[in-house]
């Protein structure tokens, strides 16, 4: 399965558009991480726990997007966009969407 944020692909033609596919993941961190981060946040700098958390969460969302695309019979997802919103204190939603297509 090919994943790309381009709207077109070089040397490939789109045979069929299969519509929008999406994947999302809402995650919050456990209390230990939270306490560590709030201590760290006194002094500034990178909050590694959060970086990892959001990274994992993004991977999970992407996985869901790919599963959905696969079930539609697509062999590529193009024009992929990421979007993030913090929906509550300590929880963030990662949203990935794109067009599922069948390439020649």
């Amino acid at each position: 399965m090919l994943l790309s944020n381009l709207e077109f692909l070089p040397d490939r033609t789109v045979k069929r558009h299969l519509g929008l596919v999406q994947g999302s993941s809402v995650r919050s961190k456990h209390v230990g991480r939270d306490i560590g981060a709030s201590l760290k946040s006194l002094f500034g700098g990178e909050l590694k726990g959060y970086t990892e958390l959001l990274h994992d969460s993004r991977e999970e969302a992407t996985q869901r997007l790919l599963e959905q695309a696969e079930s539609l019979g697509a062999n590529a997802v193009i024009n992929v966009r990421y979007s993030t919103s913090s929906i509550a204190a300590g929880a963030a939603e990662i949203f990935v969407y794109g067009s599922a297509v069948e390439l020649e």
Binding site: A37, K40, S41, L42, F43, G44, G45, E46, L47, K48, Y50, T51, L54, H55, R58, Y82
Partner: peptide, 10 residues
């Protein structure tokens, strides 16, 4: 992709 979380200090 590349991502980072950075916090402000007090």
């Amino acid at each position: 992709t590349g991502s980072v979380v950075i916090g402000s200090d007090y």
